[in-house]
């Protein structure tokens, strides 16, 4: 019974996807309600993807080159953000001294949207990988800190007591009790970070870059090539979905026993 209804919904979602593309095709190529300079048809988008796979024109790089450039920058920034952000959140939540000394600075910095840093970064670091990775870093870093902080603070007092009555030190209690409690929060933080860092990357590339998916979209706008814009958007969506799915399955492996 349960399996059957699941299948039913899968069929419904496939049908709605097909309907979406059909209406899109009808509005563009078939009835020409929307001119192709504003919105290319799905068929045209597919053709452009096929073409851009190996052709550098008109924006200077092939699609795989753009994807690689974007992944490099976002990978670097996101990883740095996670590697620094998660431990920082954990440390601030667990040790009061760190909380008192670091939290005010962090609370101020986090109110500034990462995208507002772009002009300064361009001036300071140029339009290279480092500048863009810094923007990505900032936007990944903040949700990582906030969520791991919240997660550690969510540790139940009675669980800490269990560890203490058994003679666990503060550090051991952190690793055995607080971090397992915080893990689901940390994963939420990573997923939020992934989304916002991917968004910040595209913004950074649109403002100053020589390659990347954001750059390709920007070039599409300058060259009035709506198909390039839509291809960029779709590829960004697909990659974002794949990365989120990866984090989801990693979470399923790491988080045990329905902690929340």
């Amino acid at each position: 019974m349960k399996k059957k209804s699941k299948l039913k919904f899968q069929i419904i979602s496939i049908i709605s996807l097909i309907a979406f593309f059909a209406i899109w095709q009808l509005l563009t190529d078939v009835y020409r309600v929307i001119p192709s300079t504003m919105l290319p048809s799905p068929v045209k988008v597919l053709q452009t993807i096929g073409m851009k796979w190996s052709v550098k024109k008109p924006d200077g790089s092939t699609l795989p080159q753009h994807i690689l450039a974007s992944l490099q920058v976002s990978g670097l920034g996101f990883c740095l953000g996670a590697v620094i952000g998660v431990p920082l959140g954990v440390i601030m939540a667990w040790w009061e001294k760190a909380d008192l000394s670091l939290k005010p600075v962090f609370d101020f910095v986090r109110t500034i949207p990462p995208i507002a840093w772009i002009p300064i970064m361009i001036v300071l670091l140029g339009i290279g990988v480092v500048a863009k990775a810094s923007i990505v870093f900032l936007s990944a870093f903040i949700p990582c800190v906030i969520n791991s902080y919240t997660g550690i603070k969510a540790t139940k007092t009675v669980h800490i007591w269990v560890a203490q009555t058994f003679g666990g030190s503060k550090t051991r209690t952190l690793f055995k009790v607080a971090i397992p409690t915080a893990l689901p929060y940390i994963f939420t933080g990573l997923k939020v970070s992934l989304n916002s860092s991917w968004g910040a990357l595209v913004a950074a590339e649109m403002l100053g870059s020589a390659s990347g998916l954001g750059y390709m979209i920007q070039m599409g706008r300058l060259l009035s090539r709506a198909d390039l814009i839509v291809v960029g958007m779709i590829v960004i969506g697909i990659i974002g979905t794949i990365l989120s799915a990866f984090l989801d399955s990693l979470e399923k492996i790491v988080v045990k026993g329905e902690v929340r």
Partner: peptide, 25 residues
């Protein structure tokens, strides 16, 4: 050692890991 009114088991640990926790600490 305390047996808590709310039990306070660690939900992320198996029965085995919960019981052996004190010995591992």
């Amino acid at each position: 050692a305390v047996v808590y009114q709310t039990m306070a088991l660690f939900p992320w640990m198996t029965v085995w890991d919960n019981v052996s926790f004190s010995q591992k600490v």
